[in-house]
Design a protein around this nucleic acid. Sequence first.
DNA 1: TGTATATTCATTGTCGACAATTGATGTTGC
DNA 2: GCAACATCAATTGTCGACAATGAATATACA
Lengths: 240, 240
Amino acid sequence: MSLDEPGPVQLPDAKRKRGQGVGAVYETLRHEILNLTLEPGSPVDEVKLAERFGISRTPVREAMVKLAGEGLVVTLPNRFTIVAPIDFPNLSQFFDALSLMYRVTTRLAAASRTQDDLEAIRELQRGYTLAVEARDVPAMIEVNRNFHVRIAQAGRNRYYTDLFSRLLDEGRRLLRLYYSSHNDALPRVYLQEHEDMIAAIDRQDIEAADRIAQAHAQQIVRQIQTYITEDRRLNADISL
Amino acid sequence: MSLDEPGPVQLPDAKRKRGQGVGAVYETLRHEILNLTLEPGSPVDEVKLAERFGISRTPVREAMVKLAGEGLVVTLPNRFTIVAPIDFPNLSQFFDALSLMYRVTTRLAAASRTQDDLEAIRELQRGYTLAVEARDVPAMIEVNRNFHVRIAQAGRNRYYTDLFSRLLDEGRRLLRLYYSSHNDALPRVYLQEHEDMIAAIDRQDIEAADRIAQAHAQQIVRQIQTYITEDRRLNADISL
DNA sequence: TGTATATTCATTGTCGACAATTGATGTTGC
DNA sequence: GCAACATCAATTGTCGACAATGAATATACA
């Protein structure tokens, strides 16, 4: 399965300003990890990255420490650094936390949203609709993530927004992994659920927002679990 | 108010192994920040830290990036790094998240605890009792934190444990700030609530665990808010 | 031939030095 | 006396090089 466009070729001669090196490496690596352009578990070579971005190893290492802090890479001391593997055995933990954050952030959004929040959320929902119509899976995944993060921001709790963003990012890798094979089918449901969610937030109906968020989370969790089960079955067939 | 023993004097000659430098700086800084040995908002000097630990600036910077990732320091690009200020205006966000995590982790602990978990939790509760009897405020704060983290671990959800730990750490600074002035009075209540919490977790009574955790959280939140209000009143008197 | 030990090699962690940036200081002109 | 501008000093961000580490390979020995 072809996962994505090849990484952007850096121009090593373009003089970068002082803090730009680390930021560029960090952002690029981050995207490549979340897009599965970099395979989970694959090694990350400091030297090659330094060459690729035309900088020395020091800022590259700094970016790696940041990525490690967010759990996107894992550093084996004195050995090497790998792209964080997907933790399949503990996926239930992930689903539990994801569901709770769906609920809490949507509740708070219903309580605290401003008109600006609503507009921004609706704009993202329009983008999601377009991505669905265009059957652009990567765009759908990305916009969907931004949609829910924006709702969380409307709830105005930094702690929830941070954790939720990280969970949604982790979810991005899972969706990437299973979405492309089962190409369509589900997005319609999500679209309607999103609309209901927006409506509940609009009329500040906290309990409704909670219910819809919970249902939405369950939907997504079940979807991914189905994918994984099918995946397992496939592997089981081979090993028999 | 004398906040703590002076920072441990490092021996610059003792040959450290390869990864020990960053770890030492990170751990030491972390403790000094959480103990309020380093004042929130005060600058953190890379060079002085390097001299203090007898290492170069590179590993010191690496530790700073890690601390910044956890929000314990704030880096002003091209300027300097400061100990993260306490975010008083957004304390309600903090209290909200803290309360939710108290509830969720205690619920999960009641659901999944093993005998080993229970023993470890009881052991920490014994330590807390001793600290209360000895009126050792710093120990109380630290053991209390570990007590709740251990309960969270019994719940076996990495995402909750991580967030909760960070929230409790942030709370440590708040408690340090206000506890030492109002020296006793409250710990008795907490002690009994802890006992009730353990009992609920022991008999796997999820709803009871939830209720007690919620009450416990409310207790603590109200306590801190009272401190802050008194603090404000004090300042208001001065400015009149 | 198989196992234990020494050597090589690639890669990381650390260092000291340099350059860019920014606030502070000093200077000039009005 | 004050504002605009230039210079200075302090500190950061980056670099290239070196040393420590562990894995892979080679060697010695039974």
